[in-house]
Amino acid sequence: MASGTLGQRPPTGAQVWDWLRNGRVFKSIFRYSYPSDRRNRIMTVAKNVFLHLHPSQVPRGGIRVTYTWCLGGLSFMTFLMLTVTGVLLMFYYVPSVTRAYQDIQDLETVVTFGMLMRNIHRWGAHMMVITVFLHMCRVFYTGSYKPPREFNWVVGVILLVLTLLLSFTGYLLPWDQLSFWAVTVGTTIGGAAPIIGKQINFLLLGDFEIGQNTLIRWYTLHVIALPLILSLFLSVHFWRVRQDGGISQPM
């Protein structure tokens, strides 16, 4: 089949199936045949830019679902979904105090699937806070922070803080009563810092009260700065999982 000289008879279904999974086209994309034997399974993971985040082999005990509960993966997957829906929302949302609220209303009523995208983004944001927190609990209670994984635990704590900040900066954007006053409460808390409280409050608001400066500041943090910083720490987090001896194993 793969040689390109088709016989006289038309190929059977099995031959076509085999050509699809082991033929020249498949191999030109993935380099190796379909991963149905051990060698190709290992090579497929090792040589694929997306899959090589993983080691090509993993300890049996470390990947039990009742051990990890998939929480790290779910957090990452939620982050990806938030990125995709967030980009779609950015097509319609303008961070201006005169337009923001109307844009959200348009998303809900005029834009095709706009309501669905906003809902996924909103519930996904809550979901990510929960899964990241639970992931931290799982890692703690299984003792997976212990040496040599100390630093990755620290990175994880940073990621938790970044997740909270991402969620909170997005909270202001709909520019309704709920977001306005939630952010008022939140920034007042920050402004209560000893000694530098007033400066922190001004830094958070970009002004003495919540207004256009605040909105553009939080929008920029929400769609660019924080996602980039989070991605940076996320890469370190994934990388260190492998560098620090792979996923921890139960006895």
């Binding site: 051990r38 399974r41 993983h54 090509s56 082999q57 300890p59 990947i63 993966g73 997957m77």
Partner: peptide, 21 residues
């Protein structure tokens, strides 16, 4: 005691991602 990542880890990951979506 090692399992190949494909499919032993990737399949649960894929399934959990689909269920999440």
């Amino acid at each position: 005691a090692q399992l190949t990542t494909w499919p032993h880890l990737l399949m649960p990951e894929f399934l959990s991602a689909v269920l999440l979506m």
